[in-house]
Amino acid sequence: MLHIYCPHCGESRDEEEFHPAGQAHIERPKDPDACTDKEWGEFLYFRRNPRGVHHELWVHAAGCRKFFNMTRNTQTYEIKEVYKLGEQPSVVAE
C-alpha cells in the first residue's frame, strides 16, 4: 500500500485516502469543435502505459480533496515526487 505525500496537507498518508485519476498533464483542447475525430479520440482515449517512470494525476479524496501530480515508477512503486497542478515535474519520464 502506497504512502503518499500530499503537497497540500504537507504530510504522508495511506493510499486509502487517495484516488488515482489517470495520466497527468492531459489538457482539454482549447477548441474542441476544431478537433478532428482522430485528434479528439487521441485526447479522449490514448494514454501511456510505461513500465517505469510515469506522471499521474491523483486526488486526496478523503483528505483535502485537492488534485495533484505524482511521478511514480510503475515497476518499483517508488514515488519520485509529488507536485501541484500547474507545476512541472523535476524528474521527467522518458
Partner: peptide, 10 residues
C-alpha cells in the same frame, strides 16, 4: 485531519 474512519469516507 480529514481522513477515513473505518469504511466511511469522510
Amino acid at each position: 485531519v480529514s481522513s477515513v474512519f473505518a469504511k466511511s469516507g469522510a
